[in-house]
Design a binder for these strands. Structure first.
Lengths: 253, 253
DNA sequence: CTTGACACCGAACACTTGTTCGTGTAGAAT
DNA sequence: ATTCTACACGAACAAGTGTTCGGTGTCAAG
């Protein structure tokens, strides 16, 4: 019998965010000098809006000879990490592959977020809005890691922190106008106030569900928003609140 | 009595998108040459990842002398549209102000969209989901021009073209799970198939509303999704379909 | 010990690139 | 008519920048 555990949105989120430099398995690592050169080029472009010169690179990584810089740039080009336009000043360009190491998409989005106040919310998986169903530990494999929703921060007051998205399966929340197939944007939250719509994990049966949450004496009432369905009563020790619904998105066409 | 006319989302959208270089009231316009130089610099940076040289600019805008290019760059600098680092190759940089003209946010987002497939949808105004109400010609002034929603293109199949967003007032579409306060993403559309949820303008009374649309013999039936409300029957000549609902967004917290 | 590959280096050179100078034209203002 | 300003231009020059050459040192393999 498998060990029961809560679907771990936090771990999935951390995994989503921490994509380090993926070194090619079949090649030995870059020399320290070559790595320093790449780092310098990246930083210089971010800071100045243009690539550095051979001499600037040399000064930065303590190479006194332009031909040594040239030699190392040739090596990096051979590795597919940069391109060079000949006979022009500042003719360097980092390739897509090199930029992966700097997580250019996240960096670009991070800079856009700063300027237009937007947040990228990963779509981590499904949440059932119906009878609680058992979840496996691989529940997060449903969606490609690259699936995400970009949202304007001004649509999400207090959007700091680790938002994530879940796709709704089932119609138990239909009276809260959350339908099967909708996407809900969640903010991690370990407690809930009465009436809040939350995702919860139930230790008996290792199940998860989306419901309105109520403290009711010594019990917790998980209330569907569907008049055809009965509330679920659980012992507080058996329920873990995982996140609160901040926003609902629905495609209609 | 004012002339009646449809609330013109297209015009509002065009106005939203066509933010030309914001000319200072107290300054005369840039010369054509100066504008061409700015355009070329912008394009060159997008294409090559570095600024152009003085000679490249000259070749592009048909200036044979580097000192004329230099003179014009000095003028652009005086206007606050670019910065120059002296004594370095490719020492140009467009200022924030200059980039506004190229809608740097849209351009940056456009480039991000290419990599993460996202679209920026302006929030243009309100739409009533209730009894049709009269709209004034200044209906679009409700929202700041900068209000917009960023959405992942993969959430919006066929997102090409001029999407816009409207904020819903009223609850006549509540059975379609569209509630007061929700935001609907619209795609401009002049016709409608039966059952589609659309924004329409009604020439009698100069009103607008959000409803399900049905052709019914010689009439159009505009059907609320609220059992407490009656459908509206109108002559086809009196109704203009303006857009179809592609997505619904709701903030819940 | 020899050889080859790799990494490194200074110097020179070729070319690119930015800045400055002196000059000319046209139109507006005086 | 004169002066001023804006815009334009070719040429020369200075500085920046990339490329090439001939060389050295280290290390591993033969």
């Amino acid at each position: 019998m498998s060990d029961f555990c809560a679907p771990d949105y936090q771990t999935a989120l951390v995994r989503y965010r921490s994509k380090g430099l993926g070194l090619m398995k079949t090649q030995k690592p870059l020399s320290k000098r070559q790595q320093s050169i790449l780092d310098y080029i990246w930083d210089y472009i971010q800071d100045s809006g243009r690539p550095p010169t051979i001499r600037e690179i040399g000064a930065a990584v303590k190479i006194s000879s332009t031909s040594v810089v040239n030699y190392n740039l040739t090596k990096l080009k051979e590795r597919g990490l940069l391109e060079r336009d000949a006979e022009v000043s500042r003719g360097l360009r980092l390739t897509e592959r090199a930029m992966e190491a700097y997580d250019t998409v996240s960096s670009t989005i991070a800079s856009v977020v700063e300027s237009v106040r937007m947040v990228k919310v990963p779509l981590l998986g499904n949440i059932v809005a119906g009878e609680p169903i058992e979840v496996g530990n691989s529940d997060f494999s449903t969606f490609d890691e690259d699936d995400a929703i970009e949202l304007s921060v001004n649509m999400l007051p207090d959007a700091k922190g680790n938002l994530y998205a879940l796709k709704v399966s089932g119609d138990s929340m239909i009276d809260a106008m959350v339908n099967d197939g909708d996407i809900v944007i969640m903010r991690p939250q370990a407690t809930a106030r009465n009436g809040e719509m939350v995702a919860v994990w139930l230790s008996p049966g290792d199940t998860t569900t989306l419901k309105h949450f109520y403290h009711e004496g010594s019990r917790i009432r998980l209330q569907p928003a569907n008049p055809t369905m009965e509330p679920i009563y659980v012992d507080p020790a058996e329920v873990t609140v995982q996140g609160k619904v901040m926003m609902v998105l629905r495609q209609t066409a």
